[in-house]
Design a binder for these strands. Sequence first.
RNA 1: GCAGCUGUAGCUCAGUUGGUUAGAGCACCAGAUUGUGGAUCUGGGGGUCCCCCGUUCGAGCCGGGGCAGCUGUACCA
Length: 486
Amino acid sequence: MKARLPRGLADRGPADIAATERMLAAIRDTFELYGFEAVETPFIEYTEALGKFLPDQDRPNEGVFSFQDDDDQWLSLRYDLTAPLARSVAERFDSLSKPYRSYRCGWVFRNEKPGPGRFRQFMQFDADTVGAPTVAADAEAAMLMADTLEKVGVPRGQYVVKVNNRKVLDGVLEAIGLAGDENAGRRLTVLRAIDKLDKVGPQGVRDLLGPGRMDPSGDFTKGAGLPEDAIARVLAFTEAKRETACATIAALGDVVGGSARGTEGVSELGQIAELVAAAGYADGRVVIDPSVVRGLEYYTGPVYEGELTFEVKDEDGRPVRFGSVAGGGRYDGLVARFRGEPVPATGFSIGVSRLLAALKALGQVNEQSGRGPVVVLVMDPDQTAHYQRLVAGLRQEGIRAELYLGAGKMNAQMKYADKRGSVCVVIQGSNEREKGTVQIKDLVLGAKLASAPDRETYLAMQAEAQIEVPEAELVAGVRRVLARHA
RNA sequence: GCAGCUGUAGCUCAGUUGGUUAGAGCACCAGAUUGUGGAUCUGGGGGUCCCCCGUUCGAGCCGGGGCAGCUGUACCA
């Protein structure tokens, strides 16, 4: 059998795990600062609880990983944290104080084609407010997104949180005659075309709204088939961003024309802009940007998306597209599916895995794993019990230490300690044993010996790099060496 | 799913018009150094040339089919 990992999945090493833990801690601190409380839901839900999708007999794993319970009911691995939250809140609704503000993080799964910064198992970190109809909750979410990105190490100016409102788009669609259930399919096509603006450019979107688009590989994508004046109107909507939020909102007002729903959306955007400005986030951190629509159907009002504005290149020097690293919006209908009464809710996810991948590509993540343990060499296998006692002594004093457990000779043992990143090794051969001493070799200092500028420093460093102490003073000696490189 | 490209050692890749026993660098292991890592030198282990079928005296190379990977695109509730 060949050892192999399914695509889109990854094993993670110590450096990766440590970097993830640091990022999660930073996000958690920020969310708690805003008053959100922790909650956790399982990886598995009933498929029907996750969405309208149901696996059919032929292709039961389209998009989600699904399987049947022994009572034949379909179960699925969660593909995000929002739908499970809606289920959980609906179930506990009466005992929760509203507005209910919660956060959670964890692995989610999507059975899709992987790409750079795109995995089949990845980590999300969500914050949601359930039971708050006011757009102040949306404005707060956008600002929290900005604060969080800074807290995890994205410098101000290297990211932007873009805010838009689905109602405005609905107004535009209404104005070009795409209202009503019979046009739901075309509305979705238009939505997706707009969502691809940053990917295919304005001309690409124009083609997608019209007859269709040919991509560079020669593959053809069928378009929405809109007439020219309708295309112009949709593009005017996406290009309505102006220098100031005020001007953008005025421009949007023109695009939605007389649509009541559109006007309501524009008004909500105005309120959000005001709240954001009042909190001091209108300095480029949070902006009104009509080009953000988000691909999902379930959003009902404000939508917001966090994007990194710097360019990341792969090892071949080609730019890598990571897409948005955080996204969310208002989903007033999701909890209602379980309750039969409307429950307003808004929230967002941070794509922890994707954000980490982007920061890693940027070189902002420390890829080094930490220092390794002190290694006690086995010079004489007969004395293993004694070496084990040395190791135990170090551990009792809180020093990470291990006995060399391999089969290698001294050379191999030194190499092992070197690769583990050990600060020092403890050596006791027959000479030292007779004297009742141990050698403590400083590997970090030893590594510098080769590049000593002159003989004097070389000799000084050499004397320092390996010290001999009485066995009773092993712990103190090791502490001294560790302290040099703390 | 669709389109294009690519599959040769653990990794990155060479491999001539089809011609004997398929190579290099890195990595790994051992030795030079009865007890001292990262440097240097020497040696060593490693291959179903993605798989199957075909053409041929002969296929890593040519043809057909499959599989896998990458990139783009579609889908992503």
